[in-house]
Design a protein around this nucleic acid. Structure first.
Length: 136
DNA sequence: GCCAACGTTGGC
DNA sequence: GCCAACGTTGGC
C-alpha cells in the first residue's frame, strides 16, 4: 500500500464536495509527472487531500478505491477513484510542514506546482500525528 | 530538435 | 496583485 498527496483548489473541488459526493473520480490531471504518479496508484492506497489557494493545508484522508485507469474522456490521461476516509482533526498547514525538517526535500516544498505526489511513510506518519495534536 | 515566447499554477 | 518556477507551443 502506498501513500499519496492530491492537491485541489477548494473553489474548484473541495474536501466538502468529496464528502457530499461520497466518492469521486480524480480527473483533470494533465501534468506528465503527476500523471505518472496517478498511474502508479492502486486500489487500497491512501491519499491526503490538500487545499491550495488561501488554505494551503492538508485537510483530510481518502482511500483509493480503484486502480489507475485511462480517463474515459481522454485516453492519454489517467484517473483514479477515491472516497473520503476521515477529516483531519487539525488540518496540517504548509507553514507547519515547511518548519519541520522531517519534510525537507519533499516534492510539496520543492515543486509547488506538482499536484500529485508520493508521501514517504515517515512523512505520512508525522502528518497523522501532528494532525491529532491538541491545539489552543 | 531547439528555444523564445507565452500561459499557468500556486505561494507570497 | 505579483511573480518565480515550470510547462507548453510554435516558428525556424
Amino acid at each position: 500500500m502506498a501513500y499519496w498527496l492530491l492537491k485541489t483548489e477548494p473553489s474548484t473541488y473541495s474536501w466538502a464536495d468529496l464528502i457530499k459526493e461520497k466518492k469521486t473520480t480524480w480527473n483533470g490531471v494533465t501534468n506528465a509527472l503527476a500523471l505518472k504518479h496517478i498511474r502508479s496508484m492502486k486500489k487500497g492506497d491512501r491519499a491526503f487531500v490538500y487545499h491550495t489557494g488561501n488554505e494551503k493545508q492538508i485537510i483530510g484522508v481518502a482511500q483509493v478505491i480503484s486502480n489507475a485507469k485511462p480517463d474515459p474522456k481522454d485516453a492519454k490521461l489517467a484517473v483514479v477513484e477515491i472516497k473520503p476516509t476521515s477529516r483531519l482533526k487539525n488540518p496540517v498547514t504548509l507553514a507547519v510542514i515547511k518548519s519541520d525538517k522531517i519534510f525537507a526535500g519533499w516534492d510539496l516544498l520543492r515543486n509547488s506546482r506538482l499536484s500529485v505526489m508520493p508521501v514517504p511513510g515517515r512523512m505520512w506518519k508525522r502528518i497523522e500525528s501532528v494532525s491529532k495534536e491538541n491545539t489552543e
